[in-house]
Simulated scan of single mutants.
Amino acid sequence: MLVLGVDAVGAQLSSIKDHVFENRVKPIADVGFPINLEKVLELKPDLILVASTDAKQYERLSKVAPTVMFDTFAPLDERIALLGDLLGKQQQAKQWLADFNAKAEAMWKQLRADGMKDGETASVFTYYPGDRLFVMARAGLPQMLYHPKGFKPTPMIQEVLNGSQGFMHISPELLPQYAGDRIFILVPAAGLEDARKSTDELMKSRIWLDLPAVKKGRVYSIDISKSDSDASTREWMLEELPRMLRK
């Protein structure tokens, strides 16, 4: 919504904290998580967007205002176009997408000029919550990495993508089957000490140290809050990704 010049009256503020767009969000009401229906009623919204497929939640919210169950795992082009239609910002959405896609094409072209090889694979992993290791697929950073001109998913990750899953829980023993030529590790949010501890322990383990990407120094860490697939974060990543790969 920010890239289309539209401000919300309320949101789950915990989902904004520490993100790249945090300082661009105007003061708004916190509707909490789970959503506080009374707070939503107080705000008298014209439209409610919710990233959920909970039919009961939809039924409750739709009694307050027109409600759209928004698929945050959908490709960015689809999400921006839908928001443009919903918010009466079709032209702005079309222009933003044209500008963004041109910048993305230029970034991938430069990365290839800098040495990125055709067919290089990439994997994204994170611990959350606690001691549960996840491989990311449709959600977050992979949406950007698996650009037509970008990195490829490994065959095992492609299976997760084929199943339309945002992510999948795996055991550390399966890492060699999912790990690509480059590995991105999402650092758990502050406060999730168990997940951070598990991440540190994994990166000291034999199974991790034996991965080809690790041996070649092709591992990149990024805070999980900076790895979302929203438009503002994707804009930021156009500059951040080349910096990460040059390290």
Rank of each mutant, 00 (worst) to 15 (best):
Q92H: 03
K44G: 06
E59Y: 11
I80E: 09
Y58K: 12
F70K: 02
D54K: 09
V40W: 08
L97P: 05
P45W: 10
P27M: 01
L97S: 05
R79F: 05
T53E: 13
V31I: 15
K44V: 05
L47M: 05
A29T: 12
G84H: 08
F73S: 03
A98P: 03
S62H: 12
L76W: 10
V50Q: 02
K39I: 06
M69K: 13
E38W: 09
K44T: 13
E59T: 15
E38V: 11
A51R: 11
T72H: 00
V64Q: 03
I80Q: 04
V40A: 14
A81L: 09
L82N: 07
K26G: 05
E59R: 13
R60Q: 15
K44Y: 07
L43V: 12
E78Y: 00
Q92K: 14
F73Y: 11
P75Y: 06
K89G: 00
T53W: 03
G84C: 07
K26I: 05
L49I: 07
G32Q: 05
Q91W: 00
L61I: 07
A29I: 08
D54Q: 14
L47H: 10
P34Q: 10
L47T: 07
Q57N: 02
K26P: 00
R79V: 07
A74C: 02
G88A: 06
F73H: 08
L83G: 02
K39P: 08
L83H: 01
R60P: 00
Q57L: 15
D46C: 01
N36E: 14
L41N: 13
K39C: 07
D30I: 09
P75H: 09
V64T: 13
T53D: 11
K39A: 15
L76Q: 08
D54Y: 03
W96A: 10
D77G: 13
D71N: 15
D30A: 04
K39M: 14
R79S: 03
A51C: 10
L43R: 04
D46N: 13
L61R: 09
L83Q: 06
M69W: 00
K44H: 12
K94P: 01
E38S: 07
K94F: 09
P66Q: 14
L87Q: 06
E38R: 10
L82C: 01
R60L: 14
P66G: 10
E38Y: 11
T72D: 13
S52N: 07
E42D: 13
G32A: 05
Y58A: 02
